[in-house]
Amino acid sequence: MYVLSAIVSLTLLGLFLGLLLGVAAKYLKVESSPVVDELEALLPGSQCGQCGFPGCRPAAEALAEGNAPATMCPPGGSALAEQIAALLGIDLDLSEVKEPELLVARVSEDTCTGCTRCFKVCPTDAIVGAPKQIHAVVADACIACKKCVEVCPTECLQMHPVEVTLRNWRWAKPQPVPAQSLGSGSNALC
């Protein structure tokens, strides 16, 4: 008898407290969670929409709610995915993430009419020029958002892969190689 009443009362207590917590979670919901802010700060902020969300803020919200994988941002590549995973404290397999191809905008000097449209849309002020003058892109400031390409009336603004020089050349990741094939890596004896 005592046992039964103990079970019943504890179960009721549990249910009641659970309900209380549920209600509290609903009514006391924090509007802007700090996690979302932090995530948004990590994301590139160019609002490009390649992730399938309308912008970086909605993407950050989806990440915080667990509705998007840490690897969802293509321009961020695996570096960003790692940062997101660290922030959210989740494990992550990065072997499938492709590194973004680095692009930079370039003006072809033959066809630029100096209309200044590109100059006006560039979010980072990467384009220099004046009306009726040939415009040019400062490669270091260009973030490859492609906004200028969309507005250029003569198609003289195009995206190009970033030129590889000795300054930014890096070793490639070793790929599993079939027997006897002689790759171009170094370290012949090892």
């Binding site: 890096r170 070793w171 490639a172 990741k173 070793p174 190689v177 890596g185 370290n187 004896l189 090892c190």
Partner: peptide
């Protein structure tokens, strides 16, 4: 040294350079 000694021919140092 690590790649040189590895009996499984794993390109260890190449991974580290990359």
């Amino acid at each position: 040294c690590c790649s040189y000694i590895c009996p499984s021919n794993i390109p260890l140092v190449q991974y580290f350079k990359y």
